[in-house]
């Protein structure tokens, strides 16, 4: 690990295309499609790790990757000790509190005394409700959260919204916006020092205004 070639953690899924394009613009030969590969070594010696988005912060915190690209929403959820060096701008989405249109919570209808909220974003939801001193029963789910209010599992959901299509399809509406998320360039705090030249050069190329 004495050479100054970088190891970069990349999120598979929604962010991959934009992340790969941005890295290619920065001169790193990132493949168009990952396929089933876990890792690739590029011609210039850079090692790329293809990870589940929620695993990126752990790889970076422990230094198995020097740096990575990850959504801000994932950083909220994982709370790992990584340094956030740049907002890359792509992958925009909003974390929102949403409910059924007919319940009219978005128009100020009183919330139930015993409020149930389903979410994949337990940590962010916990923080949001704790800051408001709202007693809630959080129901952690792993997929299709939008179903839960329709069948009475939850009164509200906390979920990510990119275009709003999913909400509209199920006749759900935003009750409150919790936060906005975009992709971030993150580095391991110690590795930032140890590979300072390589990492600051990459930071500069990633954040250069496209011509």
């Amino acid at each position: 690990m004495t050479d100054k070639a970088l190891t970069i953690a990349l999120p598979k899924g929604a962010l991959y295309r934009d992340a790969a394009a941005r890295l290619r613009a920065a001169g790193i030969d990132v493949p168009e499609h990952v396929g089933r590969k876990l890792t690739v070594r590029t011609a210039d010696g850079t090692t790329l790790l293809f990870l589940r988005p929620s695993d990126v912060p752990a790889y970076v915190e422990f230094g198995s990757a020097d740096c990575g690209i990850v959504g801000k929403d994932t950083l909220w959820e994982t709370d790992r000790n990584v340094a956030e060096l740049a907002d890359l701008g792509f992958g925009y989405c909003r974390l929102v509190l949403a409910g059924r249109r007919i319940d009219r919570y978005h128009e100020g209808a009183p919330l139930p005394t015993f409020l149930r909220v389903a979410t994949k974003f337990t940590r962010s939801a916990e923080t949001f409700f704790a800051e408001r001193d709202l007693p809630v029963e959080l129901i952690p789910l792993h997929g299709s959260v939008e179903l839960s209010p329709l069948v009475g599992l939850a009164d509200l959901i906390v979920d990510l919204v990119a275009t709003g299509t999913t909400l509209r399809e199920h006749d759900l509406v935003v009750v409150e916006e919790i936060a906005e998320s975009t992709a971030r360039f993150v580095v391991n705090p110690v590795r930032f020092r140890a590979k300072y030249d390589a990492l600051t050069a990459l930071l500069e190329r990633l954040t250069a205004v496209p011509a």
Binding site: N81, A83, E84, L85, A86, D87, R184, V187, P189
Partner: peptide, 9 residues
């Protein structure tokens, strides 16, 4: 302290 450049910007 956490070198959050995004926040500092």
């Amino acid at each position: 302290k956490v070198r959050n450049l995004v926040g500092l910007r």
